[in-house]
Design a protein around this nucleic acid. Sequence first.
DNA 1: CGTCCGCTTGACTCAGATCAAACTTGGTGG
DNA 2: CCACCAAGTTTGATCTGAGTCAAGCGGACG
Lengths: 198, 198
Amino acid sequence: MIRIMFDEFFATAKPMRRAAGQNVFRQGMPVTRLYRVTSGRVRLLRHLAEGTAVTVALAEDGETIAEASLFTERYHCDAFAETACELAAIPAAAIRNRLAADARAGVQLAALFAGQVRDLRARLEMRNIRGASERLLAWLRYNARGKPPQIALQRSWRSVASEIGLTPEATYRALTELQRTGFIDRRARSVTLRSGKG
Amino acid sequence: MIRIMFDEFFATAKPMRRAAGQNVFRQGMPVTRLYRVTSGRVRLLRHLAEGTAVTVALAEDGETIAEASLFTERYHCDAFAETACELAAIPAAAIRNRLAADARAGVQLAALFAGQVRDLRARLEMRNIRGASERLLAWLRYNARGKPPQIALQRSWRSVASEIGLTPEATYRALTELQRTGFIDRRARSVTLRSGKG
DNA sequence: CGTCCGCTTGACTCAGATCAAACTTGGTGG
DNA sequence: CCACCAAGTTTGATCTGAGTCAAGCGGACG
């Protein structure tokens, strides 16, 4: 119910495509649109003095980019397609109008962002776990649902690997290890967490 | 101007203390207060089935905890003092009332959270940089201001180390390395970024 | 004056990255 | 239905760079 507001806009958004390397928006340009990545990968780069740049985010899979731009005049970073991609674009003005017209919209948006903050904090915290198996286990626990806790992965383990900051190889090995030590029960992309050991 | 709203509440908040190991709130309890950590460190733990738990965040230094709780009935995690700490507490109802009364408050809050989202994404992205020197350099670039870009650190390098996910030793070595290769110019806690190499 | 903590440097270790090769799966098109 | 290709998965061997332990310096503070 919380992300309804955004989704509603994106549902009717006009889709657009970008070839690999093409630009979506540039730092310093007035904020005209909000984007969601439908497929492919978009890199957000913040330019600094001296011609250097820092990657600020990598978006794929339905992630929305530069939401913070809603509240600023100009984009604070460049966005360019790293692979060929498809994006949904909505005019920033539409959201701003909604925010001005509907008092509850602001609160809804705040709730949406607050949830993202919580989620990002959790992800960041997982990165502090050094051991590959332990980090993966933390991720599994965080994302498992039900009793007993289970995960039916809708994507590749590779993508999980990149989310938790491990190489695919390390992730597969960690899976094997967790299986071996009896922490999980796995069949392909389905995992069941087990109480303690095996 | 954006974080005025929160700060205003926290400024008049009653301070409270917790000894190391003491509880602040528990998962499942109705959300009554919002907290900001003034000193010390608070660990947020999310309990899962099977008696296991995952650390969801570690807050210190003036960080606000469990903002997302503003929009839920009950706390979704435990909070307990990891060291002796001091907290500022404000009633959640106060914020909710403000949100209900002032239409612009919701938007302000959304803007605040959106900024946090951007910041957390950037931090997460830095963690994907493997090399210690490169990661530290990215952090320095992200946090430097001015022309030429400079940083006058107000805290210890140790705390920077933990923020970027390196050991203090690795961080000091990276500093030395960046100095040696001419990327930075350092005197104690003041750093100037230099164009390319030395 | 002594203690604590941040800083610094050195030596060693090891877990995860990297490189490599094979197998499986899934989808595409003939 | 099969040939084929791309991507994901799996396992092995090797290497490297950050973690760990250790030791010493110096400034802040009681």
